[in-house]
Amino acid sequence: MNLTLYVWRQKGPHAPGKLARYEARGISPEMSFLEMLDVVNESLIREGEEPISFDHDCREGICGTCSQVINGVPHGPQERTTVCQLHMRSFRDGDTIYIEPWRARAFPVIRDLIVDRSAFERIIQAGGYISVHTGGVPDGNALLIPKENADTAMDAAECIGCGACVAACPNGSAMLFTAAKVSHLAALPQGRVEAKRRVCLMTEEMLRQGFGSCSNHYECQAACPKGIRVSFIAKLNREFIKALPRGTNTAPPSPSHGTEAKE
């Protein structure tokens, strides 16, 4: 089949960008969306043009690298599917497809469809972990965890950190991402110890990184390729409220030689 593509082309973070038109010819329905782009790129290279840069890696829907807004929907029209798992049979011959990068202030475009998602790193670094050292831990069965909790934790932990929630959110909010991590750890007894501190630190970092707040549109859940639910945002809110009366120590940690926080 033949398609008309409008692809966002942008040389660098500060360069202006625009949609460029390309014709994709001889596309087979078995191709994945990224393989379709591979075909377009191969012909661009042969014609001496710069290929379209896009992020991708595992191409099996788990690494969370691919990040394209297709016809206004992060990861495209198929529910619970990453771009790399989207196949061309979801489109029809003659279709026009708009392909754009994630858009949010916290995710600046690096080039074409590639954005910088390191703001997510800093949210996790702020407290998205259990502060345990390697070694010296009790037996795995020393701590019994109700199946229900383990399942809830797993539901939340399925997040692949792709950023579709931010891309879909009219506010560019990272609440679903942050909530998934907060909920995953808060559902487990070993994560409860630091729960109050964690929720404060992580939400604070979210603000610092320039993400918007949650207006409960629930666009994120609809765009999430892993079906992370907005009830985890409610859970984050609960955890936050629980942390209120105690007053949590969220003083900035000592300066590190780690990645610099962005203003």
Binding site: V132, T134, V137, Q190
Partner: peptide, 16 residues
């Protein structure tokens, strides 16, 4: 043991 301590949500049975 290490993974459990880190909060890796391994599958559990009904007794936990």
């Amino acid at each position: 043991d290490q993974a459990v301590a880190q909060g890796v949500p391994f599958a559990r049975d009904y007794a936990g």
